[in-house]
Design a protein around this nucleic acid. Structure first.
Length: 274
DNA sequence: GGTTCTCTGCCGC
DNA sequence: GCGGCAGAGAACC
């Protein structure tokens, strides 16, 4: 079977999973694809970066989200998304939505985001924290732009400018930016798809002072074909330096892009290598 | 708490 | 490239 056929097969299975009421079993998927369950499993993971089960799970989460966005009743959203008991859903609910379900349904109203802006060697820096942990670290020239971006990303939450307690946290993050080798022992509130989470986890394992290529990351997470998806996940990172997407460079050693400017990427890498 | 399903390393064709 | 087994672990009831 050639590459294109593989892709078509897996794409078909993805649609199939999305449309199914309940997550299809591996055997069902294999039968549909006309290959063994063993091989299908590997193929699926190689191409999409996640296993069929994880894919179905991620999609189920999406359904709950969109159900809640449409103001479906919480219980209804849970069941119609394919969960067959609400208790199973609630076991993982907070992980899935980043906040309690009811709060999510109320469009994040009531969720509080503390934030503050400061200056570091790289320019303006914004740090924000939700109930779960640090939910944004961004860099830029204009402090105002950073705040506007935060407002966009957390449109429904209540944003609270920094109090003195929070300034200490910002100081800690700035200290970490100036000396990344010290590490940042603060809880992170990381929100993303299953695939993005895998990429970000892999990024956090790159030691300070070292770099890695997109291809290497793709191989590391067991999805060697998903190089472009890896680049996409790096670009979607909202936790500058804490999730070190600046340590990912092109195969030829060129820096490629950086969400907060290539110059900052270079500065960070220079600082780390010395 | 037992059973079934998922996942992965290893090997054979 | 593809299939299969074994064993560990997770999900499910």
């Amino acid at each position: 079977m050639n590459q294109r056929l593989h892709l078509a097969t897996i794409t078909d299975l993805c649609r199939f999973i999305e449309e199914a009421e309940q997550a299809p079993s591996l055997d069902e998927l294999a039968a549909r694809a006309g290959i063994s369950a063993y091989h299908l499993h590997r193929l699926f993971k190689r191409i999409t970066g996640v296993t069929p089960k994880a894919y179905a799970k991620a999609h189920r989460t999406e359904r709950v989200r969109s159900g809640l966005h449409k103001n479906q009743a919480v219980t209804e959203a849970i069941y119609s998304a394919g969960f067959n008991s609400s208790s199973r859903y609630y076991e993982e609910a907070k992980q899935l939505l980043g906040m309690p379900t009811r709060q999510f349904r109320n469009k994040g109203k009531g969720s509080l985001i503390h934030f503050a802006v400061g200056q570091c060697s790289l320019g303006a820096i914004l740090v924000a924290r939700s109930e779960l942990g640090i939910c944004a670290i961004s860099l830029g020239d204009e402090p105002n732009d950073l705040v506007i971006e935060l407002q966009k990303n957390f449109a429904q939450a209540t944003l609270i400018g920094g109090d003195s307690d929070f300034e200490q946290l910002v100081a800690k993050v700035i200290g970490f930016i100036e000396a990344p080798q010290l590490g940042l022992d603060l809880p992170l509130d990381i929100r993303g798809t299953a695939f993005q989470q895998r990429v970000w986890q892999a990024l956090q394992k790159i030691p300070c002072g070292q770099t890695c290529s997109y291809t290497e990351i793709a191989e590391l997470i067991g999805a060697p074909k998903a190089v472009r998806a890896v680049a996409g996940a790096c670009a979607a990172n909202v936790l500058a330096v804490a999730i070190p997407c600046h340590r990912v460079v092109r195969n030829d050693g060129n820096l490629s892009g950086y969400r907060w400017g290539v110059e900052r990427k270079r500065a960070l890498l220079d600082a780390e290598s010395s």
